[in-house]
């Protein structure tokens, strides 16, 4: 009898499950971060705090509590919204240049997909890492705001949840989009024409009613506006259940759309 066979493997490698694979990818980002956190410490931690000091306490001291601030001091009114805009700004770099580099400059994604990991798992790892890092940086920001006496009460913790959701929604969509970019030329434009307006004109610093009404629909499609509505509404107890569900549904839908597209675009780019 003749048996044709591939002789037993001497290889020690095995295929890990999708959750574990995603987590291993997260681990590698964490290892990188532990070595290189200094380079992003200013933009991630110090920048937002300086912003809180300048806008919240500096500029805010000129604003008298009133209807526009829900009767609160300007800085108290600002913090939940600032958490959202900080989330979007912090997510921006991790979702553009960091991702683009892993495709094009450091090429680390290409290394990862030569292992049992799949492009979809590499994408999932990146997005999970972005969300975890966002969660950590927002927690630090919230703690600092607390030390500075800018928090109204425990309900502000909800602002952390919704800022994280808004930031992750933004990240999911932008990471997916970045996977389709062949050059880094669009990232500056994204920052100037999308991220900046999205953080300035969606009601964080002054009511949207001060803006011409034709700008409102533009704000309504941004994750920032939904995040700010949620985060302020939950922190100050002014949010009705319908609005709550609506905003959460919109942001969750963005996460899902970003995840589906991201998986597809990562696969298209890495398995050519």
């Amino acid at each position: 009898m003749t048996r044709t066979t591939i002789p037993a493997s001497r290889s020690t490698g095995v295929v890990v499950g999708p959750v574990r694979a995603t987590w291993l990818s997260v681990e590698s980002h964490w290892l990188w971060y532990r070595r290189n956190w200094r380079s992003s410490a200013f933009s991630t931690f110090l920048g937002p705090v300086l912003f809180l000091l300048a806008m919240g306490f500096g500029f805010g001291s000129q604003v008298r509590p009133g209807a526009a601030t829900g009767g609160l001091s300007y800085v108290e009114h600002l913090v939940p919204a600032l958490l959202v805009t900080t989330a979007i700004q912090n997510a921006n770099f991790d979702s553009t240049y960091a991702v683009f580099s892993a495709f094009k400059w450091s090429k680390t994604y290409w290394g990862a997909v030569a292992t049992p990991l799949t492009p979809g798992q590499v994408f999932a790892g990146q997005l999970t890492w972005n969300a975890l890092r966002l969660g950590a940086s927002l927690a630090v920001f919230l703690a600092v705001a607390g030390l500075l006496g800018a928090l109204t009460g425990p309900a502000v913790l909800w602002a952390w949840v919704f800022a994280l959701l808004a930031g992750t929604a933004f990240s999911a969509v932008v990471v997916a989009w970045t996977a389709t970019r062949r050059t880094d030329s669009a990232f500056n434009g994204l920052f100037r024409f999308v991220v900046m307006p999205m953080t300035l004109f969606t009601g964080a610093f002054f009511p949207m009613s001060d803006l011409p009404s034709w700008t409102w629909p533009l704000a309504w499609i941004t994750p920032a506006w939904h995040g700010i509505e949620l985060s302020r509404g939950a922190a100050f107890g002014t949010l009705g259940p319908v609005a709550l569900l609506g905003h959460v549904a919109y942001l969750s839908a963005l996460v899902v759309v970003g995840a589906v597209l991201g998986r597809r675009y990562f696969t298209r780019r890495l398995a050519v």
Binding site: V15, A21, E27, S28, L31, R35, T108, G111, T115
Partner: peptide, 20 residues
Amino acid sequence: NLDTELTARQNLEVYGRYFG
């Protein structure tokens, strides 16, 4: 496509982890 911002050892360890 090494991760040039990690050490040589870390490159090997991270990669090995991907193989379970």
